[in-house]
């Protein structure tokens, strides 16, 4: 399956905008933005993404809880999730992996290569 639709969960408007721009214009993906974990859980069914990009530190429901909730719903349990976060200490990354995240991309990211990094994670899945 090829990667087409990405749901990006991120609370910060500046980062939302630049990531959407980079993923759409450089990567050619279709991107939907959600500003928090709860909004993502509400909208994920309707959008049916191939992949979810998830920030960790967000007000309200954080990224880890969001992933746990996604995993408990059979409809969303198998959607691959990549964390896009500045929290990349080895212990934190181990935690993401234990929760079943596909991979992690570090912030701050380079807008020119963000799409390529996502594609590389996606390809490594196969």
């Amino acid at each position: 399956m090829s990667l087409k639709r990405i749901l990006y969960v991120e609370d910060e408007p500046d980062i939302q905008a630049v990531a959407k721009l980079a993923l759409e214009m450089v990567g050619g993906y279709q991107v939907m933005i959600c500003s928090g974990g709860q909004e993502a859980l509400d909208k994920v069914g309707g959008f049916a993404p191939d992949l979810i990009l998830l920030d960790v530190m967000m007000p309200g429901m954080d990224g880890l809880t969001t992933l746990q909730n996604l995993r408990t719903d059979p409809a969303t349990a198998t959607i691959p999730v990549i964390f896009l976060t500045a929290k990349v200490q080895p212990s934190e990354v181990a935690q993401y992996q234990a929760l079943g995240a596909l991979n992690v991309i570090a912030k701050p990211f380079d807008p020119m290569t963000l799409a390529a990094q996502v594609a590389a994670c996606w390809d490594s899945k196969a």
Binding site: E12, V18, P59, A86, K107, P108, F109, P111
Partner: peptide
Amino acid sequence: ASLHKLAGSGGTFGFPELSRQAR
């Protein structure tokens, strides 16, 4: 929380030193 945001976004917008100091 604000510093965490700056650390995570500065570099993306061309302010790597801001990211570094904020971190």
